[in-house]
Write a protein that binds this DNA or RNA. Sequence first.
RNA 1: GGCGCGGUGGCGAAGUGGCUAACGCCGCGGUCUGCAAAACCGUUAUGCGCCGGUUCGAAUCCGGCCCGCGCCUCCA
Length: 481
Amino acid sequence: MSIQLYNTLTGRKQKFESAEPGRVKMYVCGPTTYNYIHLGNARPLVVFDTLRRYLEYRGYEVFYVQNFTDIDDKVIKRAQEEGQEPLKVANRYIEEFFRDADALNVKRASLYPRVSEHIEDIIAAVQELLRRGYAYRAGGDVYFEVEKFPDYGRLSGRNLDEMRAGARVEVNADKRNPLDFALWKAAAPDEPAWESPWGQGRPGWHIECSTMSLKYLGSGFDIHGGGADLIFPHHENEIAQAEAQTGQPFARFWLHNGFITVKEEKMSKSKGNFFLVRDILSRFNPLAVRLYLLSTHYRSPVDFDDERLIAAEKGLERLQNTRRLLQEASDRLRRGSEETAPSQEKAAALRAQIERLKNEFVAAMDDDFNTARAIAAFYELAREINTYLHGGAALEAEVIELATATYEQLGEDVLGLLGRSQQQASAELVDSLMELIISVRQEARQRKDWATADAIRDRLKDLGIIIEDTPHGSRWKRSQG
RNA sequence: GGCGCGGUGGCGAAGUGGCUAACGCCGCGGUCUGCAAAACCGUUAUGCGCCGGUUCGAAUCCGGCCCGCGCCUCCA
């Protein structure tokens, strides 16, 4: 009954225990904010969000940090193309990021630190690396010297000799070793720059993540996640920087999700075969996209294909139907329209199934976060509940309550697949409808069509809604009783 | 060249030594239903890339081969 997670650092599943009892600290590399996110960006978002939800379900308090890379070559390039300030461009895409993430039912992280707001911290980190002899200056640049860090290559499972043999590393005369990487880059004339001990410049890519994760989570935090393409060099470099800087182990568990592929090929920006989440969401139910992403184990590749999205939509519909049927059943019970005595036998049978499937769900999730197996158990749960509801016997209130609570807990709290309930949706719809009615009435009043305006107010009053006109517009409330 | 992942029914996808190979989608048949929808039941792999081997027993372990993909370079 313990959680096992595959740790890239050790190459095997390990029992997960948080460093601090009851509290998990996790960091997931976020997007570079120069465009809408694509499906490949969405996978870690959904996967680690679900991991976070599961850990919370298992009773942990989770402190979840996700960064935004808002200073970077691509942001700068984009800004130049658009003739805008880089930070403005970044801000805009951060807003768009939240729209997509919200649609995918991704819970907000505890904190979203941005590079541009942590320049001081980064400069301090680079200074410390220089002081400790792990870094060197070359003109206005500062590089990390990989030879000085004996463990370099541990995460990605290679050593310096092997990597040099790869010979695909760009030659740079300023570097002592081709694999040395920039901690600080001198700025070109038109680029955003900050004053530093090495002149005007900006941070390298890797230093931001180690600096911000150390700042908010401290050395030895529990989980560091991201896409598998970040293992090398990004995460390798983070480890080198952080451990060289602090002399302490950096993160305890390294988790990496597999790629999204298109026709079996990796979806990537450089290949140009990527699909924006924004476009996908315009054609498919966002929660179906979420279901599709969780239907495969997080470390395996997932191929993007319309047919699979359609299948996911169908599956989702079934899962959401069960929730609706449960809602109807409890409404019926509340109205007291059940005439015969409930079947204790059938209720007991459902109770046993709920127990069994919930255990299966938890066992699957405990085993390296096997959402595919967990979802299978959830489908079975839906079927068992449907069978009971459809069985013709009188319903028993307590088992309906148990079924509803369990279904909601696994399906929404953990998997995030059910979305807003019927009740929440209705409440929101009422708000929107009232807004609509009030604006129609407002138009009538502007025309001085008092008859229509008064008729609307009177008829709403009959429905138990009171309109109050004020100098700033109209507001509404429900009448008492 | 180095390192690594994967090939399971029509399509996806679990399963890593032993009940009838989960689960979803699609198709077909049925139950229910005024109709429709929803829901439920049945049905689809004597077989898990190919060839050998180990074992009482393998999709699961070992060896070889074929095929697809990834990382080694910005990428989630």
